[in-house]
Design a protein around this nucleic acid. Sequence first.
DNA 1: CCTCCCTATGACAACGTGAGACAATTGCAA
DNA 2: TTGCAATTGTCTCACGTTGTCATAGGGAGG
Lengths: 330, 330
Amino acid sequence: MITQRMIAKRARTSLKTVSRVINRDPLVKAETRARIEAIIGELGYTPSQVARMMRSQKSNIIGFISDRVATTSSSIELVRGAQDAAWKAGKQMMLFNVERDSETESYAEEQLAAFRAEAVIYATPYHQLVDRPATDIPCVLLNCFDPAGRHHSIVPDDYRLAYDLTTIILDRGYRRPVFLNLPEDIVAAPLRARGFIEAGAARGIDLSGAVHTAVVRDSVGAPVFIADRILPGLMAEPTRPDLILCGQDILAVNVYFALAKLGIRIRQDVGVASFDDLEPIAGLLQPGLSSLAMPYYEMGAAALRAAIDPEAHPPGIVRMLGRFVARASF
Amino acid sequence: MITQRMIAKRARTSLKTVSRVINRDPLVKAETRARIEAIIGELGYTPSQVARMMRSQKSNIIGFISDRVATTSSSIELVRGAQDAAWKAGKQMMLFNVERDSETESYAEEQLAAFRAEAVIYATPYHQLVDRPATDIPCVLLNCFDPAGRHHSIVPDDYRLAYDLTTIILDRGYRRPVFLNLPEDIVAAPLRARGFIEAGAARGIDLSGAVHTAVVRDSVGAPVFIADRILPGLMAEPTRPDLILCGQDILAVNVYFALAKLGIRIRQDVGVASFDDLEPIAGLLQPGLSSLAMPYYEMGAAALRAAIDPEAHPPGIVRMLGRFVARASF
DNA sequence: CCTCCCTATGACAACGTGAGACAATTGCAA
DNA sequence: TTGCAATTGTCTCACGTTGTCATAGGGAGG
């Protein structure tokens, strides 16, 4: 491997001068600089990051521990946002895919400690509570939060998300929306229900009876969508809903099929709206699903910025807003 | 940060003895070892990986440059497979999401050079040709290959994938399958078409006229699914197809909607099969889509093993087989 | 008691980089 | 010529770890 020493030898100059060139010391004569830079280019030399870390006592590494995030398509944007922000900040992100509380998690922690990571971002695939002990290395929670409020935490503002989406729906003239919500034990579910109901109240519409749980769990905890069990009854009522708001896009898929079975046309007969804007599903459905995109990319970027500068980002929860993607389903 | 020196000072022993304890050198007296280990635990010391890299002149780092792979749900498994294999091999994977030929790519190359990565895996989101110059650092191509055959390359065996899936289809009694293929400029397309046709020929069925291109590109190169334009004609023929084989699951979604519009029931009236087994789409469609899963996880793992041990993995192409996931669509 | 060997421990150097202190050399102007 | 600034070089240390070699202590055998 090429070292500064070899460059110096070739340029018949001292080690120090090479070091000066590489570190942009203005004292070096332009001519010398050019000669050394030519040799650097010729030999394809790159300063050893490892030696630099050693010398500077700074790793420039930010750990990203993802609880299955990187393999869950809906939240992969968290990783992208963080990585792009890391690039801009000149940091190197070290990514670990982890199963919570498994040996993969402790392995990730050990590696990050061994690399002297400057901070860790801990991300979950959906908004939830985690109990992470305070460690010596600063930690940012992403898409999750800590009961004791020990860490800086970035989550979607589920209340506002639901409030805003419901407002859009009502502003388009829908008057009898129902909300097919996620399981109640999901943090987002009650927050969204409240946003949905309060947005209705702000428009003088009582939606307190219009929230239904449409996702349950099977014996092993996997989600089961039961819109096709709920909808036949709902849609048979005399004052049947004019819009179905789904807790997530993949539930909306279930709704699409359930409505098709009932012979009810989406948009003409009933609107459908949703949360997630999951690629590529939302765009593939026919009609295209109008959905509220979760701010995952921005959340990831914000988490990285917080990880870099913990002083400016004290413990506490930051809630972020989404972006409505209009397609054709309402 | 805690160092061995501090441990040594506290234990009133030499630096080297601490090092021996940490590296499980049996020469150390049990008593001394216990004392030092107690202090290590007390101070929460972890050896600096950076210093070890420095000293050993080995980075143990494998680069993974992904051309949008990590953000494409279909191929994220490539990353997972590689990362799990890296873990088993005691290597650290360094992941870069890149846009081909952009500054993000050169940044990734620079970083990997600076970290003295031992090898690089270059991955693409679908089977394609790439022209990567030979570099000083060993390179494994994942889901892509090199025209000059300079690198070890791991790709899906698209010919066999199609051959095997078609054989399954014919063995279930279908006799008039059509293949709605990907665009012809996709490497996989002609390979699969050949596998489809030859599997038919092996069963005495002429499928040479049953291949249609059902994905085209719009003005900016984005894929457009035209199954809904092709199917009405095809399904109106007197000897209409009894099964539709789709080039990918998201095309199958398009097929599902097109068939629904025509009032044709899947499975009862016509079977549907596909490639990808894309989570969560394949399982969400109703009926569930029977699909041939691409061997992405295994490919990623194989790429990492090849990257670790280039001697045993000379330049050349390794083709891998998939796994059929039976659901209810045929 | 001396030598030899074995066990346990220690001293030191080196990996590649960067920085400080300061000396030496060059070039140019007064 | 001297004076001064610009440029380059020498030397030293530091970062944390580990391989090489050296040394101290103790027991056994002569």
